[in-house]
Design a protein around this nucleic acid. Sequence first.
DNA 1: ATTTGTGCAAAGAGTTTGCAACCAT
DNA 2: ATGGTTGCAAACTCTTTGCACAAAT
Lengths: 147, 147
Amino acid sequence: MSHEMDHCQQRLKTMGYKLTKQRKIIIDILLSSRKHLMTAGQIYEEVRKNNLPLNFSTVYRNLETLLECGLIKKVALQDGTASYEYNRHDHHHHLICLHCKDAEMIDYCPYNEINRHIEEHTNFFPVEHRFEIYGYCEKCREIIKRD
Amino acid sequence: MSHEMDHCQQRLKTMGYKLTKQRKIIIDILLSSRKHLMTAGQIYEEVRKNNLPLNFSTVYRNLETLLECGLIKKVALQDGTASYEYNRHDHHHHLICLHCKDAEMIDYCPYNEINRHIEEHTNFFPVEHRFEIYGYCEKCREIIKRD
DNA sequence: ATTTGTGCAAAGAGTTTGCAACCAT
DNA sequence: ATGGTTGCAAACTCTTTGCACAAAT
């Protein structure tokens, strides 16, 4: 069992949950996918493609459980779809391609600017923030140029 | 007819659409609502509460039309729900309350920082960006403190 | 008059839930 | 053994669509 999987098992146990075959499959998919962010549908597609023993409703239930355990993160994209990524505890934001829908990470975060501005100008108590840039990735810029 | 409604009629006409009674209702609701952002459901609730002649499917169809005309803006929130606001052409972002779900505007925008960072560090071509802060508004901070 | 728009009902996509059987510890 | 977990099917929410009729210019 990989180091990451060990970590997941431990964390699940602490929260009173078990590391089942089905949860392993989901974690494995998120860890190994070429895509940085995946929707529940994309995860299930991967399951079907490889004939893995995992029901769609179990995917949804376990994404919720893993989220509760802090093992994954959920990002709601502009088009309304929810995507998930394995939580590597490195705070980052995303550049999201409008063409291929894939995402890449950026380290830049406007948080400090935000926080200072809000404290100075509002009575709002910030808890979390969300920051995404939509556009075209290197690969898709080429494709679109050709068309 | 108000100045804003005149503007909408003109814009709709340019795009080959008509200013119908139903579209007026939707625009009026968005212009006059206490809420800064409204979901399709909240708009329809307002319609029903006032017994206005407007079907739910017409709400959806017209939000799409008004969006296409650039008369309203659409924001997909973190919880996956789509919200709409009248487009006043003042670029801004939102502070969104996790308790009452209402939003207030902030003028602060990290765009220039973003853009410079992306140009320097990536091959991504940015088109638009999204930036929201979730937390508790002044009113709800008080309510939560009391509980 | 013509073209766009509406109401209604039905279909679709994505997600959630109840329940009996199953499995990880 | 037993409490959490799964598969299945059905329900649910939000959104979209086809069609005949209605309305705006």
